[in-house]
């Protein structure tokens, strides 16, 4: 154990931070794209269901295959890895944003409109805050998955903890596989806890108790 840290300690830190970088970049991109897209979709519910099914089909393509597809287009390295993972982050966030906004009590939305809120004000002041707990649940789910899937980035030269796992496979060295897996799992758990905390912080005060009583 100590021996392992002595030889691989430095590398472990570098790989972990690479891993974190790839995952966080992909999830941030996902959030930036999927949340506004989900809000837009909520304005066109007929189209939304079809669109979401379509994204769902894309998601069923094996992740290794997606990574491989990107090699001819974007080459190898971190960028294609981030972009491939970004595609995977889209669906849970998009779906939760759409459903979260769709399920906001229509009475409240109508009241807002009747009070004289513009469409944008209604989204910012009413629909988004009320859908936030559901949206955050989507972000959390995406993040945890992505940290696991980011190990595949190593396959196309993206680095990260996947490097340890692939090396371990090639060299029949279980300790390397464990060295890649355990930190990835720990990262995922920490991310999950952090986001749970953030979700709680972001949930509007007035919604908290009502959720608890439900």
């Amino acid at each position: 154990m100590m021996e392992f840290f002595a030889t691989h300690g430095n590398e472990l830190i570098i790989k972990t931070s690479e891993h974190l970088y790839i995952s966080v970049a992909a999830i941030l991109l996902g959030v930036l794209v999927a949340i506004p897209l989900g809000v837009l979709l909520s304005r066109a519910p007929n189209f939304a269901d079809r669109f979401i099914s379509f994204i769902g089909i894309l998601q069923t393509i094996p992740s290794l295959a997606i990574l491989a597809f990107f090699i001819p287009i974007l080459g190898v390295g971190k960028l294609p890895a981030i972009i491939a993972l970004f595609f995977y982050s889209l669906l849970p966030i998009l779906r939760n944003t759409y459903i979260g906004i769709r399920d906001v009590n229509p009475g409240v939305v109508e009241a807002g409109k009747g009070m004289g809120m513009s469409a944008l004000q209604s989204i910012i002041k009413v629909e988004f805050p009320m859908a936030l707990p559901v949206i955050m649940a989507g972000v959390r789910l995406s993040t945890v998955y992505l940290i696991g899937w980011a190990t595949l980035a190593a396959f196309i030269g993206g680095g990260g903890l996947g490097d340890f796992i692939f090396d371990g496979l090639n060299l029949y060295e279980p300790s390397l596989i464990i060295a890649g897996t355990v930190p990835a799992t720990i990262l995922a758990l920490i991310a999950d806890r952090l986001l749970a905390y953030l979700e709680n912080r972001l949930t509007p005060e007035g919604l908290k108790d009502s959720y608890e009583t439900v």
């Binding site: 009475g107 807002g112 009747g114 004289g116 007035g206």
Partner: peptide
Amino acid sequence: PVELRRSIGYVIQQIGLMPHMT
């Protein structure tokens, strides 16, 4: 329409208070 609605009071059936506001 937005200006118009602000100048007319409106009370709806399901009460429609914003649950996330005081």
